[in-house]
Design a protein around this nucleic acid. Structure first.
Lengths: 244, 244
DNA sequence: GTAATAGTGTCTATGAGACATTATTGA
DNA sequence: TCAATAATGTCTCATAGACACTATTAC
């Protein structure tokens, strides 16, 4: 049995909410292949380095943040022959949900890095198969907001219920009733905890401040579909057969 | 930038229900490393072969089945340095849910292959890091039964409601009320469709036969926890931060 | 007949969305 | 005062689980 020689990279889908839009960090490539094209940040896994470590290192290099500042998980692995013209490259994609960064993205080794609204990325715009990786990451993020308290990963350490609602509305591209939303998130045990403080955003009654709670699963879940009587509508992120 | 040279393998978590138990296909290793130890079936990805193709090829070699016979999806990727004493090996794990096979498992290049009850695998029994891969696969399977119609992947083309209920009870290790279960699965649109036929298992009223429907997502989902008033109890398969 | 399994109906509690109402601030 | 936002309460409908009841078979 001969060992098959392959290069392994990690690619990052870094999502945040800036200017009331779901944005993704993209790198403008300076060198071939795909010069001057936008791509997901990423790089080769170093010898002796674990996959998650390599992804965390890239995260730090691109944003200065540690994985603990938001949510960080493995997304999927892509290895179709020919996906990289330089040779056989298998990439392990990671997904991170991050709070809005106070500081701008520092320049890296690429020609430029920028947060771009996810809705504005046109199909075929990204290098390699990064369109698909990004699409998988977005779907994973949307699905996870339903069953997990991960929406808080987009928020700063202290946030209001309205802040949290804005996360859901932005990621799902829907409107949610503020009163029912408030009742649901404050009623879901372990989701958010009051800090005791309040804040006044513009005008209106001061809002309580919360921090994320200890729950890792939402009971009951918040549901995307307004009227849950649909049938086989959407294809979930990993629910198709014969997945790559 | 130097290309990091790595070997890439695929490993398979093949699950089925046999003798009223959730069973996993294991291979008895004949050669080092880990001689005489049980391991998940797998092998190296061939040059020019896509990851999913390699996994499907291994599935055919081990069971004679195609991915369409059940459910087949990518699980996760594991690449911790030292996980394989032969060198840097990154493995992409796939999960398959299969119906009970009428024919026994044909012998492969390994010393032996056998279906083993998943509950009987003791921690540390499997070679490499296959304990963890198996645990991740089991948790993924359990979670997916809630939100998707994948339980039908464990069933033959035609099955009864009681057959389907047995799948849930076996995978979740719980008892479900037959009457409520019947109402829920027949009420979930696109989950199962009556074929018109009936069958008598032992004695009792004949049961209608069903086939899987077109739905890819269950509305409403079937829930595992009997009394959904718990809080941060279970850690979902991919919901922890800083995932590998 | 009895036992066993399949399938339907009914009851109650809970959570959903819709929406009124009160509370607290700035202008 | 008014406008705006925060927070709570009420109403109705759908679905959950518990469980009674009927249907159809083997023995």
């Amino acid at each position: 049995m001969t060992l098959n020689v392959v290069s392994v990279t990690v690619d990052l889908v870094l999502l945040t909410i800036r200017q009331a839009a779901l944005q993704v960090l993209l790198i403008r490539r300076g060198i071939p292949p795909y010069p001057d094209r936008w791509a997901l940040p990423g790089g080769f896994v170093l010898p002796g380095e674990d996959l998650g470590e390599a992804a965390a290192r890239e995260l730090r290099e691109e944003t200065g943040l540690d994985p603990q500042h938001g949510h960080f998980e493995q997304l999927a692995t892509y290895g179709t022959p020919g996906r990289d013209p330089r040779g056989r490259v298998v990439t392990v994609a990671y997904l991170a949900l991050l709070p809005d960064l106070p500081s701008p993205v520092p320049g890296s080794d690429a020609a430029g890095a920028a947060w771009r609204p996810a809705a504005e990325i046109t199909p075929g715009e990204l290098a390699f198969d990064h369109d698909r990786i990004l699409a998988d990451g977005l779907e994973r993020a949307r699905a996870k907001l339903e069953y997990t308290p991960l929406a808080t990963a987009f928020c700063p350490p202290e946030f209001t219920v309205a802040d949290l609602r804005a996360v859901y509305e932005t990621v799902w591209r829907t409107r949610l009733d503020p009163r029912n939303f408030h009742r649901k998130v404050t009623g879901a045990e372990g989701f958010i905890e009051p800090t005791g403080g309040t804040v006044i955003r513009d005008r209106g009654r001061p809002a309580q401040l919360f921090r994320r709670g200890p729950a890792t699963l939402l009971h009951p879940p918040l549901l995307r579909q307004p009227a849950p009587q649909a049938q086989s509508s959407r294809v979930g992120g990993t629910s198709r057969s014969s997945d790559l």
